[in-house]
Design a binder for these strands. Structure first.
Lengths: 157, 157
DNA sequence: GAATTACCGTTGGTTTGACCAACGTTTTCG
DNA sequence: CGAAAACGTTGGTCAAACCAACGGTAATTC
């Protein structure tokens, strides 16, 4: 992508700049995840969701991280084989599988937490702490406006 | 994606917020493009690149908008069938196809310009004009930092 | 209480964007 | 000249996102 001849119309566009920034972020995360032995970006979300709550059904898990049931099945199977989580039928509702994170999974999540934090730092490197705060606050408002989500409560950082 | 049970770790992350915002932007653009009869997001980039320069080879076109040669071929074929651009062999270098936008293509691009502008407005609706400016300026710096591109020159808006 | 409806996990798809390899043709370089 | 590179094209692969249908289970509605 040659900056000299790139379409002028594009490079000032919010959608384009957001797309580029998002791509860079995903690249940084992906590189670090891959180095940590994780092939899919959703694994972090799933482990995080499990760590922050008790045992959950797969369907719940999917709703919480915005993942299709079928994709949750594949991810959970893989993570279970690696010993990062356990899957047992729910005695109270035998349609459900209760998924819970293991100690090994908790350890692994801590590793990923560090990688993810480093990636944030790397992505926002050119911005001052005040600017990062302002940027995130604006993004929160944009996301809230379009999704109806209310993240503001605890979205400090 | 339930805001009450979404992983707390995720919703303050720059990468996550950028991804969400980018998705919303792409959704808005996609909806309007689709309504205008465009199936692929890259068509706008290609028409814009062609409108801003004279006739160009397909390979050049791909480099300018960050598209693979093979994908340019498909897009150009489609756009040619719709009459939005013409493709003629370059007499000076018979490896190349000279692609140029047609009058009909220029008209169509104007339509898309309007749709794209409307999508930007819609995406950034919750932000004040000053905030939008600050947001774009920060994103420009982030993108420049990670790509080596220098967009700053004319990225006002 | 029986029957319909809804939810669960799973399997097996489709679609889309991004990417890559190879080819015949043409130009450029050494 | 011959080797290397660039061009457009074809025909892939790959991962992410999504959808449909299934058997099994629970909740609902009559």
């Amino acid at each position: 992508m040659d900056p000299r001849t790139m379409p002028v119309r594009l490079r000032g566009l919010a959608t384009w700049l957001l797309g580029q920034s998002s791509n860079q972020g995903h690249r940084l995360i992906g590189e670090r995840m891959h180095a940590a032995g994780v092939t899919s970006r959703s694994y972090y979300s799933l482990l995080a969701a499990l760590a922050e709550s008790g045992p959950t059904s797969q369907a719940d898990l999917g709703r919480r991280v915005g993942l299709d049931r079928s994709d949750v099945t594949a991810a959970v199977t893989d993570l279970e084989e690696r010993g990062f989580l356990g899957r047992t039928p729910d005695p109270a509702d035998r349609r459900r599988n209760l998924v819970r994170i293991t100690d090994s999974g908790t350890e692994f999540l801590a590793e990923l937490d560090a990688e993810v934090a480093a990636a944030q730092e790397e992505l926002l490197a050119p911005l001052t702490p005040q600017e990062r705060e302002a940027l995130l606050a604006m993004l929160v408002r944009v996301v809230e406006h379009h999704t109806g989500l209310k993240l503001s409560d605890t979205a400090e950082r």
